[in-house]
Design a binder for these strands. Structure first.
Lengths: 340, 340
DNA sequence: CTGTTAGCGCGTTCAT
DNA sequence: ATGAACGCGCTAACAG
C-alpha cells in the first residue's frame, strides 16, 4: 500500500510537506516564519498549506514544546452572578493580551465538584489557575500549586498554603457603610450576609461589628442573619428582622444578593428602613428607595488577578533565581449614595 | 549519562512505572482502570502514582487518542451582559455532563478578533464551537465547520453555510409586545434597537412593523432608532424621540440595553410614555414604572445549544451513516407585565 | 496478566 | 538551506 492515505481527518504538517515536495521539517520552519528558508520554497509550502486548509495542531505543539497549553483555568461558583462574570471578563481581557485563553469552571458551590475541576484543569496542563474557592478547605488548590501550577485567588486569601491573591477591602468597606448608617442616627442596625464559611462574609461582618463598637452601639446578635446566598432567601431573612418586636431601623447587607432581597422586603413592609450594602449593581439608582452601597472596581478584580498570574508565568519562563514572594493586592472601596 | 533524570518537571507515566517496577503499559492500564491487571500489581502502581503525585497528561492523551480535547469553544461578544453569561452557564452546565470544559472567547464586538479567535480554537482542536457571531459575515465559522469542527449558532441563524442553531422567537415576541401596546390604544409607537447588522435586531424590527401593520397603525420612520448597544446610547436615543414635536406615546425596545436606557429617559422626562421591551431582567419589577417585557428562558438557550452540539459529537463518535440534517430550535417567548 | 513495538503531530539537534 | 533521526507522554495492537 502507498505510504500515506490521502484524506484522513485534518491535514497534518506532513501532508503539507508532501504536497510542497519538501520535508516536514522545512514545512515546519516555513509555517513558523523561520528565516532560514529559500523564498521559493517558502512560497511553495505556503501555497500547499493554503490549498489544504492546513491548521497547525496546537495540542501536538504544546506536547512537543513542553510548555503550557496557553490555557488559564478560572474556577468560580456561579457565572450568573454579575460579580463573577465581570471577574471572568477582567481575567480574560488581561490574559488574552498574552495569547492565553480562559477555561471556565462553574462549580455551583459544590466543594466536591470544585476538587474534581481543579484536578482536571491540572491534568489538562493549564498554565495557571485563578480561583474563587467556594469553601474554606483549600487543599485541592494547595495541591495544584504544589504540582507547579501557579494559583491566584480572587476575593479570598489562601488558607493553609501560599499564593498570590487579590482582595477587596471587605473590612473597611463594611465598616464605612455601617458607620454611615450610624452617623444618620440609627442605633439598631441589622446584618444580612452569606454563609459564615465565606471569607468575604466574615470580614464584612467584622467590619459591621467594628463600626458598631466604634459608635458605642450595642451589637444585638438577634439582628445578624448569615446564610443567605440567593435574593429570595435574603428577602425572607430581612422580612423576619423587620417583623421583630423591636426591629432594626437600618440594615447592612454583605453582598448584592442580600441587598436586593432586603430591598424587596423593605419595600413590601413599607417600614422605611434605611439600607446599605456591599457591591454596586445596575439599576441601584432606579429603585426609588435611598440606598448606600460599597462600590469597587469589579473588572479590576479580574484584571489584577490576571496580571498576578501573568507575572508568575513570566517569572517561570525566564528561569530567574528563586520564586518571588507571594503578593496580595487589596482593592479600595468607596461609598455611593442612591436615591437620596 | 543515565537513562532518566530523576526529578525534572511533573512525573510521567514512566516515572510511576519505574517506581512500581512495571512497564509503562501496565501503569497505563492501572491508571485507566483496565481490569486485566493483577490486584497486587495494581496496588503497587497506585501507590507509586500517589507517592509521586502523578497526574495524567491530558494533552498527550488526546494527541494519542486522536479524539478531541474535551474542550468546547464559546464565542460571545460581551460576557458582562447577563444574556451572554446566562448563555455561557447553560452551555457549560450541559457539556460538563459529558466531561467537557468550556473555553470562553470574548470578542468585544471586534469582527477581526472573532476571526482570529475561531481560528485559534480550531488550532487548539476544540471538539466544537458554540457562537453568537458579532457580525453578518460568517465565513470564519463556515471555515471551522468545513474543517470538521461542529458549529452551533445561538441567537442568530447561520449565514451562507449550514449549521445547527437555537433561536428565540424574535419576530413573534416583538410583534406580541408591540400589539399589546397598540391594544392599549397607542397609535404612535417608537422603536429602539441594536445596529441593523444584528439578526435579532432586524427580526424584532420586523415583528414591530408587523404589529403596526396588523393594527392599521402608521409606520413612522422617524420613530425608529437603530444602532444603540449600550444603555447610555439608548437613553440618548430615547430622549431624542421623546423630544420630538409629535412624540411617540409608547416605545418598544429590542433588547435589555435599550429598554433600560429608555426607562431612564422616560423617568427623566416624566412623560409617562408606555414602555415595552425584549428580554426580561432582574429588578424589572422594582422600577416603579409599568413595563411590558418579552421573556424567554435564557438559560435554556445555552442548554439547547449545548445539547445540539453534544448530539453532533455523539453522531461523530458512532461513525453512523451520513450526518443528520442540521436542526434549528426556536424558543418560545411570553409577555410579562410589571408595575401595572 | 504483562511487555514490546509503534506512532499521534510536531520541533529540536545534528548532520549534510 | 534542507533533511533524518529522535522523543514529548501516552496508549492501541500485538506478542508472549
Amino acid at each position: 500500500m502507498p505510504a500515506r492515505e490521502p484524506r484522513r481527518g485534518k491535514p497534518t504538517l506532513r501532508d503539507v510537506a508532501e504536497r510542497a515536495e519538501v520535508s516536514a521539517m522545512t514545512a515546519s520552519r516555513v509555517l513558523r516564519d523561520d528565516p532560514k528558508v529559500l523564498p521559493a520554497t517558502r512560497d511553495r509550502v505556503r501555497a500547499a498549506a493554503a490549498a489544504l486548509g492546513y491548521r497547525p495542531n496546537e495540542v501536538a505543539r504544546s506536547l512537543r514544546l513542553g510548555r503550557g497549553t496557553g490555557l488559564v483555568g478560572l474556577v468560580v461558583t456561579n457565572l450568573a452572578n454579575p460579580f463573577y462574570s465581570r471577574l471572568a471578563l477582567g481575567v480574560d481581557a488581561v490574559v488574552a493580551g498574552d495569547g492565553l485563553k480562559t477555561v471556565i469552571g462553574n462549580t455551583r458551590q459544590d466543594p466536591r465538584g470544585e476538587r474534581d475541576l481543579v484536578a482536571d484543569l491540572v491534568a489538562r496542563r493549564v498554565d495557571g489557575i485563578i480561583a474563587v474557592p467556594a469553601g474554606a478547605d483549600h487543599r485541592h488548590l494547595a495541591a495544584a500549586a504544589a504540582d507547579g501550577v501557579p494559583v491566584v485567588l480572587a476575593s479570598r486569601p489562601p488558607d493553609g498554603f501560599d499564593a498570590d491573591c487579590v482582595l477587596v477591602d471587605d473590612f473597611g468597606g463594611a465598616r464605612d457603610a455601617t458607620a454611615r448608617l450610624l452617623a444618620r442616627g440609627h442605633r439598631r442596625v441589622g446584618f444580612l450576609g452569606s454563609p459564615p464559611a465565606v471569607h468575604t462574609g466574615t470580614e464584612r461582618l467584622r467590619g459591621y461589628r467594628a463600626a458598631l463598637a466604634d459608635a458605642g452601639a450595642a451589637a444585638d446578635a438577634r439582628l445578624v442573619r448569615q446564610g443567605q446566598s440567593q435574593t429570595h432567601e435574603a428577602e425572607r431573612a430581612a422580612a423576619e428582622l423587620l417583623a421583630l418586636p423591636d426591629p432594626p431601623t437600618a440594615l447592612f447587607c454583605s453582598n448584592n444578593r442580600n441587598t436586593i432581597g432586603a430591598f424587596r422586603a423593605i419595600r413590601a413592609a413599607r417600614t422605611g428602613t434605611d439600607l446599605a450594602g456591599f457591591d454596586d449593581f445596575e439599576l441601584a439608582d432606579a429603585l426609588g428607595l435611598p440606598l448606600t452601597l460599597v462600590a469597587y472596581d469589579s473588572d479590576e478584580l479580574g484584571r489584577a488577578a490576571g496580571r498576578l498570574l501573568l507575572d508568575r508565568l513570566r517569572e517561570r519562563r525566564s528561569r530567574t533565581a528563586a520564586a518571588a514572594p507571594s503578593r496580595t493586592v487589596v482593592l479600595p472601596t468607596s461609598l455611593v449614595e442612591y436615591g437620596r
